[in-house]
Design a protein around this nucleic acid. Structure first.
Lengths: 195, 195
DNA sequence: GTCTATAGGACGATAGAC
DNA sequence: GTCTATCGTCCTATAGAC
């Protein structure tokens, strides 16, 4: 991918984080990227093309967060790695906030645009799988299906807490605490056995 | 409120469930309601006015679901009432699906439109409070703060599972099972005591 | 590859008759 | 209260020069 294309995709991520997928205007994207609207159509054919590539970029970047743990966390063991992989997405840094916002928008848009659903389901599945694997390393006694279910609950909870945070219904530190407690509960493994 | 206004608000709920808050077109709403666009502006001033009243309607209707339990569930005790209050929102009936979709859109829109945030936070708080109260009746041994935290986790999880379902990343029966297990886990109360 | 300029259409909102 | 008709704006997409 050429540098220009990459620049435009990154600019699109910023605009989506600011205005939403459905608030993205090609003109505003052009200004953000410092190019003309015509150049954007030259590279991406149409608005749907911009969205498709940008959402793929967001999915990959979100994946990288969990797939490539911080070496410090890795050194502190799988438990720390797990907590970090989840809590990392509840942080008030510009990049994380941008990614969470864009990911939430991707999710919300897919409800009405079926063309996004396959990519989204795939990205979700990959993410859940990575968390399930971490759970397996923290808690080798548990079964694989139990870890899969825990991972699904934790990631869905994270998405729910994240959008509450971003929509102003839940302070960030409160969201982080709730998620931390949920991780503890999933690891406590005192729930009735597999149904 | 006049009959016509109510009709239009209900039509707007259907259009929002079909196209999203940001996909709502006044012309399409007019067709759906069987009136002219001019009449809509006569009743609601502008597009924002339509949205404001419709989102208030959605909030109230969602609230009614949990606030007015099915008499059968109430008779089977608070535990059944709690499970129903939560699982009720994961159902493939037209009305529930419509409400879940519209609620999710309201949530997602509030990330970018601060004018919606106050109403949304209030509605969320009311909902969490009702669930916390049910938890207190199921599990009188627990403390109020613990019930509040459980209610926040369960409702946030429900929102996360709901949008995964609606966006095609999670089958409905799977979502229902994950939520049921989470309810069991919150009631098992084996997590480390209040932090 | 990148620009300026603009065509063409969609949409929010209003005017004015009834 | 309700309609038909339309205005003005914003936005996607393209034409054509460099």
């Amino acid at each position: 991918m050429s540098d220009r294309r990459t620049e435009i995709v990154k600019a699109a991520t910023r605009v989506i984080a600011r205005r939403g997928v459905r608030g993205l205007r090609v003109g505003e994207l052009a200004t953000e990227a410092g190019v003309s609207t015509a150049l954007i159509y030259y590279h991406f054919t149409d608005r749907a093309g911009i969205l498709r590539e940008t959402l793929a970029f967001i999915g990959e970047r979100a994946d990288r967060y969990t797939a490539e743990p911080d070496p410090d966390d890795a050194a502190r063991g799988p438990r720390a790695e797990l907590e970090q992989a989840l809590l990392l997405e509840l942080q008030n840094s510009a990049e994380v906030r941008e990614n969470s916002t864009a990911w939430g928008e991707l999710r919300a848009s897919a409800v009405f645009e079926s063309s996004l659903r396959d990519d989204l389901a795939r990205a979700t599945h990959t993410w859940v799988h990575e968390i399930a694997e971490l759970l397996g390393r923290v808690h080798p006694a548990g079964t694989a299906p139990a870890h899969a279910a825990s991972a699904e609950r934790l990631t869905a909870l994270l998405e729910g807490l994240s959008i509450r945070w971003l929509s102003g219904s839940l302070p960030l530190d409160h969201a982080r605490r709730l998620l931390g407690e949920a991780v503890d509960a999933e690891l406590a493994d005192c729930r009735p056995a597999l149904r």
